[in-house]
């Protein structure tokens, strides 16, 4: 009996240890409230409301939501910048609520602002960051040269960040985040303003780190196309809560097989056309764009009617697409627009 008892007691420990070895971040009950306004007008805003999340080692994990959903507040707690009001954050076995300074020794963080680096040249910004990650001078210079070459920043290396375009400056900040290899990267909208070449350079640099070092990436984005393309799993945030968390494919399966029909009109379409009348009842209108979600058969039928009838003369453009993460967000009860589709 004693042997059986010991085995039974050891088994959960071993299981917990295996789970822990696979987990990068374990977040439970995370709550953060801000007070805004003055005196009588003071209101409390719950930026994060009992958030539970597990981010596995080596995955690219996304936080998706519109502005004000609580993404940046969550990220500031994941990087030790902000102490939660309640809840726990465990990073690779370290309790970040008790020891927020451990984050700086495990995580490379790319925030939204580059103010601290703006007046430095790209090369010096990257080298200084490497020195501040405890690399010695020779190693810092070598790491600087490697990451500048990897991201194709060679021609910009001697130029100050504030003289670069928004996308180039962002790329330089990504270089600073990547230098000095950290096991975890927390990137707040890393590719904002970048051209496609720079975006590809960033994603291939991140992929390389994941393949070679098992780097974990937590990515904040409100760009649904990017989220669908690069993320392994995604948590959808709305008003401080996680309203869903799954793979992009798994989330899209939640909205069933509905498709999305977008119609852009040149002028007002004829209301006496039955297809137009039906679409007019169901569409969400944004300027001259009508957006509807419906089963594929009905969508095809209505599109055929519009494109073959008199309404076609007033039609400027149309798209019929499978559901995106934005559709998932809206179907899950997301109350804000503001996700970017490009």
């Amino acid at each position: 009996m004693a042997i059986v008892g010991a085995t039974a007691a050891a088994a959960p420990d071993a299981a917990a240890s295996r789970v822990s070895a696979r987990t990068c971040y374990r977040v439970a009950g995370l709550t953060k409230t801000y007070r805004t306004g003055r005196r009588r007008a003071r209101v409390e805003v719950r930026a994060n409301d009992a958030i539970d999340l597990d981010v596995r080692r080596g995955e690219i994990f996304g936080l998706l939501g519109p502005n004000g959903a609580g993404k940046s507040t969550l990220v500031r707690q994941l990087t030790g910048l902000l102490r939660p009001d309640a809840g726990t954050v465990e990073l690779l076995g370290h309790d970040l609520v008790k020891r927020p300074d451990a984050a700086a020794r495990l995580v490379a963080y790319l925030g939204q602002d580059s103010g601290a680096l703006d007046e430095l040249t790209v090369g010096l910004a990257v080298e200084t960051t490497a020195r501040l990650r405890a690399l010695d001078p020779a190693a810092a210079r070598a790491a600087r040269d490697a990451v500048i070459e990897e991201l194709g920043l060679g021609e910009l290396a001697e130029r100050p960040l504030k003289k670069l375009s928004g996308g180039q400056r962002r790329l330089a900040c990504v270089a600073a985040a990547l230098v000095g290899d950290r096991p975890v990267l927390v990137l707040d909208e890393p590719t904002t303003g970048m051209d496609p070449v720079a975006r590809r350079a960033v994603w291939s640099a991140i992929d390389r780190r994941r393949a070679e070092h098992g780097t974990t990436v937590v990515l904040v984005t409100h760009n649904v196309i990017e989220a669908e393309t690069v993320l392994d799993r995604v948590a959808v945030l709305d008003e401080g809560r996680v309203i869903a968390c799954d793979t992009p494919g798994g989330l899209k399966a939640l909205v069933g097989d509905e498709v999305r029909l977008d119609l852009v009109w040149r002028t007002d379409p004829p209301q006496d056309d039955p297809a137009v009348a039906r679409l007019a009842c169901e569409a969400v209108r944004t300027g001259r764009r009508w957006t509807t979600r419906m089963d594929p058969g009905t969508a095809r039928e209505l599109l055929a009617a519009v494109t073959s009838g008199p309404a076609f003369d007033t039609l400027d453009d149309f798209t019929l697409s499978t559901p995106s993460l934005e559709d998932v967000y809206l179907a899950l009860g997301g109350r804000h627009e503001g996700l970017v589709k490009g």
Partner: peptide
């Protein structure tokens, strides 16, 4: 980390005061 569990990831080195000061 002294506060961390036994399976915790080792922390990277902290930057010494003088090295940090010189870099800044």
């Amino acid at each position: 980390s002294s506060a961390a569990g036994s399976d915790a990831e080792p922390l990277a080195a902290a930057t010494p005061l003088w090295a940090g000061l010189a870099a800044v």
